[in-house]
Structure formats: structure tokens, C-alpha cells
Computed example of a mutant assay.
Amino acid sequence: MLHLFRRCGIEFFIKLQHCLLGLYAWEFVISLDFDWKVITGKHAFRWPLFFYFAGRYLMLAALIGIIVSVDPPTSLNCHNLVTFNELAASASLGLACINLAVRTIAVWHNKWITRLVILLVLGHWSLVLQSGLVITSWTPTSGCVIVETKNTILAATSLYAMSFDFIVLCLLAYRLAFALDPISIASGGLARRLISEGLVYFLVSFVCNSISSLLMIIIVYDPVVAVIFHIPACVASTIASSRVVRSLSTFNAETGRVQ
């Protein structure tokens, strides 16, 4: 019975990765116009966009790598490929958090808040850069199959991301609600846009990371089922974060009120 459950889990995992790649590819293509405007200079490149581009393309590379690992044409080195996929997906989650954190730093423009946010970022990335959390083995039928996972660190990464996003969103909301200079910060509806976009991102990230963390904590007997929603959480957070960046960047270009 347990063997059948594990087999169903593997099949579901493989199909889910194909669906995620299709979803992300569609999202990627329909938003390429923004990337092209930045590349061609039609939209000004500001340094926070580095995190947007890095997270967006790392997530795409991770999904392609995952598809190769679960549906390979020939035998391959699972360890190296899976390590790359794992780091790229986790890094995209970390970069998604940074996208909102950068805007909080910009709104506060306070050295203590900046230091606090930087410390939170460093703490998150100390978990993100952990490697060897997913151990796989090669099988002719299913490619690189997960045989062991370090659920504690993976769950800690997701929980940290949730806490990080919550702290940053609260700081952002507080600053915009009690801004000393309401004309420069809240004019043109920028405050409402920052709060609404940030809240949408936080809710998406919170729900997805909550499900992922709970499965890792509760289901310890099957490594595949335990981490089955880790990649969906990374994908959802990256999509939501990228949409926030594009929305705010478009808003900025239309108003010209943000430095």
C-alpha cells in the first residue's frame, strides 16, 4: 500500500512540474514586453530591477531543469542537476522577498530600517543557499527520483520567507500610513498601490508557503509528497512578486513621481 502511495506521489509530482512549466512559460511570455522595454532602454533600468530579472529567469531555468530531471532522454548526473534546480528555485523565492523589501527601504529611507531589512535578507539567504537538501537517484522510468529530503531546512526556508514578508509589509504599511511627507509619498495613489500590490503578493506567498511548510512538517515518511508543493510555492511567489514590480514600475513611468 505504501509503495502504491509513493508511486502515485511520484506520478503526480512529475505531472505537476509539467503543469508548472506551462503556467510559468505562459506568464513569462505575456510579460516579455516589459523586459524588452528595459533591455532596449525604452524603460529606465534602476538597480532594484536586477532582483526582478534574476528571480524571473532563475525560476524559468529551475523549471526547465526539473523537467529535464524527471523526463530525461538518457541517463544523467542527478546530483548536479538537482542541486542546481534546488538552489535556483530557492533563490527565486529569496529574490521575490527582496523585491518588496527594496521598496520598503526606499519608502523609509532610514538607516536603522535599512540595516534591519538587510539583516533579515542575510538570514533568509543563509537558508536559501543550503545545498544537498534534496537527494535523488536515477531510475530509467522516472528519471531523477527523490529518495530523501531535509525537510527541516526546507520548511524553515518557507517559514522564514513568510515571516520576512509579513515584517516588511507591516513596515511598509506603517510608513505609508504615518508618512511625514504625504505629498511625496502618498501622492497620485502611490501609497494605495504599494499597499494593495504588497498585500496581494503577501497573501499569495503566505498561502503557498504555508501549505508547503505544513506538508514538510507533517509528512515525513514520503520525501516526494513532503516537498511536492515546494516548487509551486516558489513559482507562485515569483509570479506575484514579478507582477508587483511591473505594476509599480509602470505606475512610476506614468506619474514620474518616484525617484
Rank of each mutant, 00 (worst) to 15 (best):
W108T: 09
W108I: 04
N110S: 10
N110D: 15
N110L: 13
N110E: 11
I113C: 10
I113E: 11
I113F: 12
I113T: 07
I113N: 08
T114A: 14
T114P: 01
T114G: 15
R115K: 12
R115A: 11
R115H: 04
L116Y: 13
V117F: 06
I118V: 11
I118F: 03
L119P: 00
L119N: 08
L120F: 09
L120T: 02
V121R: 03
V121H: 13
V121E: 05
V121D: 04
L122I: 09
G123H: 14
H124L: 09
H124V: 02
H124T: 02
H124C: 11
W125D: 03
W125T: 03
W125I: 02
S126H: 03
L127Q: 02
L127N: 00
V128E: 11
V128P: 05
V128N: 09
V128Q: 13
L129H: 06
L129E: 02
L129I: 01
Q130M: 12
S131E: 03
L133V: 02
L133I: 04
L133D: 00
V134D: 06
V134N: 12
V134A: 11
I135M: 07
S137I: 12
S137N: 13
P140G: 13
P140I: 15
P140L: 15
P140W: 15
T141S: 12
T141D: 15
T141I: 12
S142K: 08
G143W: 05
V145N: 05
V145H: 09
I146N: 11
I146C: 01
V147I: 09
E148Y: 07
E148V: 03
T149Q: 10
K150S: 00
K150E: 00
K150M: 02
N151A: 08
T152I: 14
T152F: 14
L154V: 07
A155M: 12
A155C: 06
A155I: 07
A155F: 04
A155V: 05
A156W: 03
A156K: 01
T157H: 13
T157P: 00
T157C: 03
T157W: 14
T157R: 09
S158I: 01
S158F: 01
L159K: 06
Y160W: 10
A161T: 11
A161S: 15
A161Y: 05
M162H: 04
M162E: 01
M162Y: 04
S163M: 10
S163C: 11
S163K: 05
F164Y: 15
D165G: 10
V168F: 13
V168S: 07
L169F: 15
L169G: 05
C170S: 11
C170P: 00
C170Q: 06
L172H: 03
L172E: 03
A173N: 06
R175S: 02
R175M: 03
L176M: 14
L176Y: 04
L176V: 06
A177Y: 13
F178Q: 04
A179C: 10
A179S: 14
L180K: 14
D181W: 09
D181M: 08
D181C: 04
D181Y: 07
D181N: 12
P182Y: 14
